[in-house]
Amino acid sequence: MRPRISIVPGDPSGIGPELIAKLLQEDGVRDAADILLVGDAHLWQRGAEQAGTDIELNSIDEADVPGFDGLGHLDLATISPEAVQVSEVTVAGGTTSLRCLDKALDLAQAGHVDGVLFAPFNKAAMTAAGLNAEDEHRYMARYLGFTGYHSEINVLDELMTTRVTSHIGLKDVASNIDGPGIERAIELAHATLARSGKTRPHVAVAALNPHAGDNGKFGREEIDIIEPVVKACQKRQMNVTGPWPSDTVFLKAKRGEVDAVVTMYHDQGQIAIKLMGFERGVTVAGGLPIPVATPAHGTAFDIAGKGIANVGATRQAFDLLVRMARNVNSEIAA
């Protein structure tokens, strides 16, 4: 089944519009899905100019969105051309980012598209424009009225990582780790892998302490908290192992022996996965009822407008999103 993917340009001051213009020229992209560009026409045209390519905007009215196919464009008026300041954090840039995202989420929630791809946002600009959330993932959940468990998932090729704690100080990590939190993270990794087409995925759980605590010498979190959850998940017939020392678990991941790694804190997984392939990394809004993905890198203000942005991660995000949307559609059809 051919999914429908809506794409929003991200922060116009960064490389987002350029990346999407390049994505649309990639082999196989337009064959893989029906694509709806959501955002101001001049943003897409600016991106094409930056990329040194042409973009064909087939603008349609919102009433015609349910029946569109191929490449369509839903024109919005969220920012004036004069307000776009390349390589600068602006309230206007944050405002257009939020309004375009809102519209794409509206379309997905109404069933008119099967997934949302957004080019990189700038959190400072979005916060200045009224984000009022820890990050765009919390914002999206609130906007959708979703109250279930959700978390950012990072993807590199066939490997996924998620984490038990996220944007908190390192000194607070141990006190914020508990059995239910670890179990939710494992379940989220397992469910997201299944949605992407993996059958019986192998989820590895990282330890918190060096040497996985060395039998309690360096802390008892592995013995008292992490290991009991792993065993409980195994009893539920989930393919889960650990806790593995965090300085070796990613060697197993790099060799393809596991499909996902659940880490205990933010940088435990981020450092490893970015070293393994920063230019290919993807971020998935794990747990949300709508498949949402974005390249894991930022707005790259240092190269914005120069036409040299690497489309690799954006293509990876698109391909993963198409795969997830297809699997969701297959489940619905079944």
Rank of each mutant, 00 (worst) to 15 (best):
D11N: 09
K22N: 06
L24P: 13
Q25N: 14
D27C: 08
V29M: 04
V38Q: 09
L43V: 15
Q45N: 13
Q50S: 09
Q50H: 13
T53R: 09
D64F: 02
D69Q: 14
L71K: 01
G72F: 07
A83T: 06
V84A: 08
E88S: 07
V89C: 11
G94E: 12
G94L: 11
R99D: 15
R99G: 05
C100V: 12
A104K: 12
D106W: 13
G111V: 10
V113Y: 07
F118E: 11
F118P: 12
A129S: 13
Y139G: 08
R142K: 15
F146C: 03
F146T: 10
D157F: 07
R163V: 07
V173K: 03
P180Y: 11
A185F: 08
L188F: 00
T199R: 01
P201C: 02
V203N: 02
A207T: 05
A207L: 01
G213P: 10
E222P: 05
I223T: 08
P228Q: 06
P228A: 09
Q237T: 00
T241S: 14
W244S: 09
T248Y: 04
L251K: 12
G256D: 01
D259G: 11
Q270K: 04
G286D: 01
G286M: 02
G287H: 01
I290Y: 03
P291L: 02
V292C: 03
T294F: 00
F301E: 00
G307S: 01
I308L: 05
A309L: 05
G312M: 06
R326E: 12
I332T: 14
